[in-house]
């Protein structure tokens, strides 16, 4: 209708997809939810679109005792509905289950949700909190990237234009509890003002914390990772005052902007509140 010159390719394997992408202005397409919006408002005009919907290799979801692997073409709805993921990774499960609305969840894919790189997105902090790694394949090489190192800026990732996210691997660590909480004060159907993903891993005694992870969305140009939380919490038993102190550390780490979802000052305060609540949720879960 608007332009009939965009080529639309439907590869059936990763290697074919990688061959297809080797063209100026070619893009991958997952569920297409963000791409369609950009395209219809003429913000992007790709020469070629490589739709991954028929690449079966990208649609797997496997849970073993040591790791969970989710293919990049798995949808939010599939992640949210999976019982094993809900049990092993409750934060990831709940983040996938609150994104947008039921239609967005049915269409949006893991690869798209990560590559889109809107800093308000829910999934990244939930996944960063459980040490997710992104497997990427390019024309000649492949690499694994910690999701915490994946984001470079607003709508920007470390991916090269011809790199394909194939899957995300999340290590399963005994005695780790994780959570994700989002704050949507205006409407539940909104992007979060702030979202917080957290995990606490306990030592063999089940009481003292060995590692703490905390990541936030909505409060910077990229997902914010608070490494200070670990410094405060590791070795403690996560008493309330320690949790609060750890949460308070995010105040310095975040870099929020004023917008309709709140002033920067408010978002900073809410980041602290939700960091605390997300950490606390790891104690009871």
């Amino acid at each position: 209708m608007q332009s009939t010159d965009t080529e639309f390719l439907i590869p059936t394997s990763v290697s074919e997809a990688l061959r297809n992408i080797a063209k100026e202005d070619a893009i991958f397409l997952g569920g297409g939810t963000s791409t369609a919006l950009l395209y219809k408002t003429r913000m992007i005009e790709p020469a070629r679109v490589v739709w991954l919907g028929n690449v079966g290799e990208l649609k797997g979801m496997f849970a073993s005792p040591t790791e969970v692997k989710i293919g990049s073409m798995v949808t939010m709805a599939e992640i949210a509905a999976d019982r094993e993921i809900a049990r092993l990774l409750p934060g990831v499960s709940s983040a996938a289950g609150v994104i947008g609305n039921a239609r967005v969840r049915a269409m949006a894919t893991l690869g798209g949700a990560l590559a889109h790189a809107d800093p308000r997105q829910d999934l990244p902090p939930a996944l960063i909190a459980v040490d997710a790694k992104v497997s990427v394949r390019g024309g000649s090489s492949s690499r694994e990237i910690n999701l915490s190192d994946f984001y470079e800026g607003f709508l920007e990732t470390v991916l090269a234009p011809d790199e394909l996210i194939t899957e995300v691997t999340i290590p399963i660590i005994p005695n780790r509890h994780s959570s994700y909480l989002r704050y949507t004060p205006t409407s539940e159907g909104d992007y979060p003002t702030v979202g917080a993903g957290a995990s606490l891993t306990f030592n063999g005694d089940g009481k003292s914390i060995s590692t703490a992870k905390l990541a936030l969305c909505g409060v910077g140009a990229v997902p914010i990772v608070s490494s200070e939380a670990n410094l405060v919490l590791a070795g403690t038993t996560g008493d309330d005052s320690v949790l609060r102190r750890a949460a308070d550390m995010v105040r310095e780490a975040v870099d929020p902007q004023d917008d309709e979802r709140g002033s920067a000052d408010y978002k900073r305060d809410m980041a602290v509140v939700f960091a605390y609540r997300a950490l606390k949720a790891c104690l009871v879960s």
Binding site: F8, I10, L29, G31, G32, T33, T35, A36, L37, Y39, K40, V49, W51, G53, N54, A77, A102, R103, V104, A106, M107
Partner: peptide
């Protein structure tokens, strides 16, 4: 689409193949 609800306003028709 395949039993799931989809927003046709942000669905590129190419993704409906099969």
């Amino acid at each position: 689409v395949n039993g799931s609800p989809v927003s046709s306003c942000i669905c590129l028709v190419g993704t409906l193949v099969d």
